[in-house]
Write a protein that binds this DNA or RNA. Structure first.
Length: 965
RNA sequence: GCGCGGUUAGCUCAGUGGUAGAGCAUUGCCUUCACACGGCAGGGGUCGCAGGUUCGAAACCUGCACCGCGCACCA
C-alpha cells in the first residue's frame, strides 16, 4: 500500500472511481437477482438545464438512499432521465435563435424546421446536466436513462390521452383560461402565481340612459377593459341601486364621435359585494373569470378587446388599439378624465396572477382548450390520508389533501410546438366550416361594437350566435360543467393517425409538460409492456422532490399511478427544503446569488459539497446556503484523510483480530461510541433525518475518535520517533513494523473503527471512502461483491449485539471510566491555561489518585496533559498555593516551582467556589420546596439529592484548599 | 380571509417536561512527530411577548406580536 499524500486531492480520485464504478457496471439494476428490490426514479431535470444547488440537495439525498440500500443488500434501481420542459426549452431555443439573428420569430422557420432546431439544441446541450450529476457521484443506472420525448415515452403519453378521452374525462371547451401574453399559450392554474401589486383603484361615473343626469360610480383597477364591458351589475338587495336594475348605462369607451356610446344593461347579481368599492361592478366577461360567470348567468355578450400578445385590438376603439394593455390603461384613464367621468384615483394593493415562466401578468381569456377531469382522485387522496403512502415531513399531507379537495379541471393544451402533440385529428372540410363560423363570430362582435347590431335583440338569441362553439367537439352543460364527448364523427382521437390522414388535420396544440411527467414512474420502466423492470421495481420505494411541485407533479403522479397501474407509484415521499442564499432569498440567476455547484466541486470536492449540504439540511426546513458549509465538508474530508494517514504510518497487519484481554479503557470506550454512532446514523437515515445522520458522523469521528481516541492511542503506540524519521521511513513503505501486542491490538481497534466508519460515511461521501477503503486494504479479505471490489456493496454496519459487548467488556462502567479520564484531562488543561503555561511547554503534574490507576491510563493522562512527567502520589503534600483541580480521578496538581502566585490561585479558587455555590443554591432551592419533594417522582428527587451531595462535597474541598492558601 | 411553518448564543440551527447545546464567527495560547482545511482552553443566551397547566416549562395549552410559505380572493 502506497503512502497516502498529506492533503486530500479530490479531483483525480473522483474521476478514477466514477470511471471504475461505471466500467464495472456497479449501478446497473438486475431484475433477475434474488435480492429484495429498492427503487427510486429521479425527478427529471429540464433537458436543457444545468446543475443547481437544488439538484445537489435533491440528488445527494437520492444517492444516499440508493447507496445505503445497496449496502443493506437490496437490488437497487435509481432510474435517471430528463424532461423536455415545453415552455422553458422552446423559449430558450427561440431566444437563442433570435439573438443569433437567424430568425425574428419562430414563424419564420415554421413548425417542422423550428422543431428540428430544438432537437439539435437538445442533442447538443441535453447531456450537460447528466454529466454534472455524474460529477456529483450519483449512482444512477445510466443504462436506463429516459427522456420524456423518447418514442416509447411519447407513445405512452398519447395512449393515456386516448384512454382518458374514451373514459370521457378529456373534453374540449371554450372557457376562461389563464393566458400568457408573453409565451402565447394557455396555462394551468398551477402555473399562475399571485403577486401583490401596488396599483390604483379608479372611480368613474357612468350615466344611466333612462334617467338624465343620473350617474352610478364604478370602481375598477382595469379601466382599459371598459370597451369590453357588456353590463353594469349591482346587488339586487342593495337599496341604493336595486331600482336601476333593468335600465341601461351609457358605456363611455370606446370613444365615439358625436357621443354615440353604447348602452349596456344594468343587471342584478348576488355576486356583487355591496361593501366593496362603490357596490357597482362593471362586467367584462372576456377578461375576468368572475365577470365571465356573471355573463353566463345573464347571457351577456362577450367582447374580447385584446390580442393574444396583450395589446388592445380594434374592439377597444381607435385610440387604444395596438397599445399594450398597461399603456392602454393610462390612455383610458385620460379619456375618462377628459370626459369628466373620472371621480377619483386612489392607491390600491391587489393580487395579480403572473405567469410562472414568463413572469408577466396573465390575462384571463376565453379560449378553446382541452381540459381533463382528474382521474383516480379518490384513491390518490385516500392513500395519503390513511398513511399507506407516507410524506416526510408529514405536514405536506395536509397541503396535498387540501388541494385534492378543491381540485379544478386541468387545462392540458398548450399553444406551443415543443412537446407531445395532441393525438387528435379533424376532418378538413369540417374544420374549414368551423373557421368560417369563427369569422362570423368576430364579425358579429365587431358589428355589435360598431352599433350595427342592436342590443335590443333578445339576449338568448344573441348569446347563441356569439357563443356557438367554434369547433363542435366537446360540450359543456349550462353551468360550465363538462360532460362527456358526444360526437365522434368528425374527429379522430388515437395513438395512430387516421388511415386517410390526407383528409385530416392534426390539432396544432401540444400537451402540458406535466401531462407527460405524471407518467414518469412507470412510463420509464416500459409500461404498458409488462417488462421485468416494471414487475420488479414498480411501485418505487422513495420519491425525493421539492414541495414546490407537490401539485404539479407528485399529486398527479399518484393519480396516474392508480389510474394505469392500479397502485400508488411510491411508498414514501421525501420533501426537501428549498435552497436559499445567506439572506434567505431564493436562488436566482438575476440576483447572481446562485453558486455553480461545479465550481464548488472543483474547489472543495464532490464529497465536501455533498456532506456540507447534507449537514445543513434538516428535515423540512429551507436551507440557507453558505459556502462555509462546503468548507466544513472539505475540512471533514481532510480530517478523515489524515486520521487514515496516521493509521497507515504505523504499518502492521490490517484488521488484525482484537484480543479482548488487551483492551484498554479507551478501546472499550471508542467501541461503545462506535456502536452508538451506528445506531444513531442508522436510525436517522431510516427516518430520513439526513442532517442528523451527517452530524452524528461528524461528532463521532472528529469529536470522539480523533480528538480523544487517536490522541490516547498515541500512548499505546509508543514513541513514533521524530517527524523526519517518519517521513524517511515512509520512503521504504510498505514495511511491517515490529509491534508489541498492545500496539497491535490498538491498531486492530483503529482498523475496526475505521472500517465501520468508512461504511457509515460512504453514502454521504462515496469517493473518499472508496479511496481509503482500498488504501487501507480493507477490501483485501472481502468477497468481491461484499466490499472486495468496492465499498459500495460492503455491508451496512449493524449495532453490536449483547454477546459482542460481553465478549469485549463494553459496559457502562467502561464508558464512565473513559469519561472520568477525559474530564480529568480537561481540568488539567484548564490548570495549565489559568497558570499561564504556554501550550507547547511540557510541565510536571501530580495526581493524588482517588482510586488505583492502571498504568495505561496514567500514560494516556500524561500524553493528553502534554506533561513532562505525571507523578502518582497518594500522599502528596503540595507546596502552599499549588494550583489544583478536583478531578474525577483524584486531585490533580500543577506544581509551579518558584512561580507560585498566591493571589492568582486565591482568585481562581474563589471563582470556582462561587460557581459551585450557585449550583448548590439552585439545587437546594428545589429540594427545600415541599411541593417539589412531595410532587416530583422519587427518581428525580433522588437525583437532585445526589447532585446536592456532589456539589457540597466539592465545595468543602474547595473551601479547604482556599483555607490552606 | 383560511391553513401551515418559524421566533433558542453575533449568524445558521438542534433540543418536546427535570443541571441550556452544535457548527460557523469571536478571544487567548500553540506550527507538539496524522491534520493550521489543525490542536487546546475560553467568552457569549432573562429560549419573541403575556397568561395558563404542572412540584417543575425553551418544551404542553390559550392569546398576541413579528417573519416566511401555501391556498382562496372583491371589481
Amino acid at each position: 500500500m502506497a503512502e497516502i499524500p498529506k492533503t486530500y486531492e479530490p479531483t483525480a480520485i473522483e474521476e478514477k472511481w466514477y470511471a471504475q464504478w461505471l466500467a464495472d457496471g456497479e449501478f446497473t439494476a438486475h431484475p433477475n437477482s434474488q435480492k429484495p428490490a429498492y427503487s427510486i426514479v429521479i425527478p427529471p431535470p429540464n433537458v436543457t438545464g444545468v446543475l443547481t444547488l437544488g439538484h445537489v440537495l435533491n440528488n445527494t439525498i437520492q444517492d444516499i438512499l440508493a447507496r445505503r440500500a445497496r449496502m443493506l443488500g437490496k437490488e437497487v434501481l435509481w432510474l435517471p432521465g430528463t424532461d423536455h420542459a415545453g415552455i422553458a426549452t422552446q423559449t430558450v431555443v427561440e431566444r437563442t435563435l433570435k439573438k443569433s439573428g437567424a430568425i425574428r420569430h419562430r414563424d419564420d422557420l415554421g413548425r417542422d424546421a423550428f422543431l428540428e432546431k430544438v432537437w439539435e439544441w437538445k442533442e447538443k446541450h441535453g447531456g450537460i446536466i447528466i454529466q454534472q450529476l455524474k460529477k456529483l457521484g450519483c449512482s444512477c443506472d445510466w443504462s436506463r436513462e429516459r427522456f420524456t420525448m423518447d418514442a416509447a415515452y411519447s407513445a405512452c403519453v398519447s395512449r393515456v390521452f386516448v384512454d382518458l378521452y374514451k373514459k370521457g374525462l378529456i373534453y374540449r371547451g371554450k372557457r376562461m383560461v389563464n393566458w400568457c401574453p408573453a409565451s402565447l399559450t394557455a396555462l394551468s392554474d398551477e402555473e399562475v402565481i399571485m403577486k401583490p401589486q401596488n396599483g390604483t383603484m379608479y372611480h368613474f361615473k357612468i350615466a344611466v340612459a333612462e334617467e338624465p343626469l343620473t350617474f352610478l360610480t364604478v370602481a375598477t383597477t382595469r379601466p382599459e377593459t371598459i370597451p369590453g364591458d357588456t353590463a353594469i351589475a349591482v346587488n339586487p338587495s342593495d337599496p341604493r341601486y336595486a331600482r336601476f336594475i333593468g335600465k341601461h348605462a351609457i358605456r363611455p369607451l370606446p370613444l365615439h364621435l358625436f357621443g354615440e356610446q353604447k348602452l349596456i344593461p344594468i343587471i342584478g347579481d348576488t355576486a356583487v359585494d355591496f361593501e366593496f368599492g362603490t357596490g357597482v361592478l362593471k362586467v367584462t366577461p372576456a377578461h375576468d373569470k368572475a365577470d365571465f360567470e356573471i355573463g353566463q348567468r345573464h347571457r351577456l355578450p362577450v367582447i374580447d378587446v385584446m390580442n393574444s400578445n396583450g395589446t388592445m385590438n380594434a374592439h377597444a376603439g381607435e385610440s387604444l388599439a395596438g397599445l399594450d394593455r398597461f399603456e392602454a390603461r393610462k390612455v383610458a384613464v385620460e379619456h375618462l378624465r377628459e370626459l369628466g367621468f373620472l371621480v377619483k384615483e386612489e392607491p390600491y394593493q391587489n393580487n395579480v396572477g403572473y405567469s410562472e415562466r414568463a413572469d408577466v401578468p396573465v390575462e384571463p381569456r376565453l379560449s378553446e382548450q382541452w381540459f381533463l377531469k382528474y382521474p383516480s382522485v379518490k384513491q390518490a387522496r385516500a392513500v395519503v390520508a390513511d398513511g399507506t403512502m407516507k410524506f416526510h415531513p408529514e405536514r405536506w399531507a395536509k397541503v396535498y389533501d387540501h388541494w385534492l379537495g378543491g381540485i379544478q379541471d386541468w387545462c392540458i393544451s398548450r399553444q406551443l410546438w415543443w412537446g407531445h402533440r395532441i393525438p387528435v385529428w379533424y376532418r378538413r372540410e369540417k374544420l374549414d366550416a368551423a373557421i368560417e363560423a369563427s369569422v362570423a363570430d368576430e364579425m358579429l362582435e365587431t358589428a355589435l361594437d360598431a352599433g350595427e347590431a342592436d342590443l335590443a335583440i333578445p339576449r338568448q338569441e344573441l348569446s347563441v350566435k356569439i357563443h356557438g362553439p367554434v369547433v363542435p367537439l366537446g360540450v359543456q352543460d349550462a353551468g360550465g360543467e363538462s360532460v362527456a364527448q358526444t360526437s365522434t364523427a368528425d374527429i379522430h382521437v388515437g395513438v395512430e393517425p387516421p388511415e386517410d390522414v390526407e383528409n385530416w388535420t392534426q390539432d396544432p396544440d401540444v400537451l402540458d409538460t406535466w401531462f407527460s411527467s405524471w407518467l414518469w414512474p412507470f412510463a420509464t420502466m416500459g409500461w404498458p409492456e409488462k417488462t421485468q423492470t416494471l414487475a420488479r421495481f414498480y411501485p418505487t420505494t422513495d420519491l425525493v422532490t421539492g414541495p414546490d411541485i407537490i401539485f404539479f407533479w407528485v399529486a398527479r403522479m399518484i393519480m396516474a399511478g392508480f389510474e394505469w397501474t392500479g397502485e400508488p407509484p411510491f411508498k414514501n415521499v421525501y420533501f426537501t427544503g428549498i435552497i436559499r442564499d445567506k439572506q434567505g432569498r431564493k436562488m436566482s440567476k438575476s440576483l447572481g446569488n446562485s453558486p455553480d455547484p461545479l465550481d464548488l466541486i472543483a474547489g472543495f470536492g464532490a464529497d465536501a459539497l455533498r456532506f456540507g449540504v447534507m449537514r445543513s439540511a434538516p428535515l423540512g426546513v429551507d436551507i440557507l446556503f453558505d459556502e462555509k458549509n462546503v468548507e466544513l465538508g472539505r475540512n471533514f474530508c481532510t480530517k478523515l484523510w489524515n486520521a487514515t494517514r496516521f493509521r497507515q504510518m504505523h504499518g502492521g497487519e490490517t484488521e488484525a483480530e482484537i484480543d479482548p484481554a488487551l483492551l484498554t479503557s479507551d478501546d472499550r470506550w471508542i467501541l461503545l461510541r462506535l456502536d452508538g454512532a451506528i445506531r444513531e446514523v442508522t436510525l436517522a437515515l431510516e427516518e430520513y433525518r439526513f442532517s442528523d445522520a451527517a452530524n452524528a458522523l461528524y461528532r463521532f469521528f472528529w469529536g470522539e475518535f480523533c480528538d480523544w481516541y487517536l490522541e490516547a492511542a498515541k500512548a499505546a503506540l509508543g514513541n513514533l520517533g521524530s517527524k523526519e524519521d517518519a517521513s524517511e521511513s515512509a520512503v521504504e513503505l510498505p514495511k511491517i513494523h515490529v509491534l508489541n501486542p498492545a500496539s497491535a491490538n490498538t491498531l486492530a481497534v483503529i482498523d475496526f473503527t475505521l472500517a465501520h466508519t468508512l461504511r457509515l460515511m460512504h453514502p454521504f461521501m462515496p469517493f473518499i471512502t472508496e479511496e481509503l477503503w482500498h488504501a487501507l486494504g480493507f477490501h483485501d479479505d472481502m468477497p468481491a461483491d461484499q466490499g472486495g471490489r468496492t465499498i459500495m456493496f460492503a455491508h451496512w454496519p449493524a449495532p453490536f449485539d449483547d454477546d459482542f459487548k460481553i465478549h469485549y467488556g463494553l459496559t457502562p462502567e467502561a464508558d464512565a471510566a473513559a469519561l472520568a479520564k477525559h474530564d480529568t484531562v480537561t481540568l488539567g488543561r484548564g490548570l495549565r491555561r489559568d497558570s499561564g503555561i504556554a501550550a507547547n511547554k511540557r510541565v510536571r503534574f501530580v495526581l493524588k489518585p482517588a482510586a488505583e490507576l492502571p498504568a495505561h491510563d496514567a500514560a494516556v493522562l500524561k500524553i493528553l496533559l502534554h506533561a513532562e512527567t505525571l507523578d502518582l502520589d497518594p500522599n502528596y503534600l503540595p507546596p502552599r498555593a499549588t494550583p489544583v483541580a478536583l478531578a474525577p480521578l483524584g486531585e490533580l496538581f500543577l506544581p509551579l516551582e518558584g512561580l507560585i502566585d498566591v493571589e492568582a490561585e486565591r482568585e481562581r479558587i474563589g471563582k470556582e467556589i462561587a460557581k459551585v455555590e450557585q449550583e448548590l443554591t439552585k439545587v437546594r432551592a428545589k429540594l427545600g420546596s415541599e411541593t417539589f419533594v412531595s410532587g416530583a417522582p422519587a427518581k428525580v428527587v433522588e437525583e437532585h439529592r445526589k447532585r446536592e451531595i456532589d456539589w457540597q462535597e466539592r465545595l468543602s474541598q474547595l473551601q479547604r484548599i482556599s483555607a490552606d492558601l
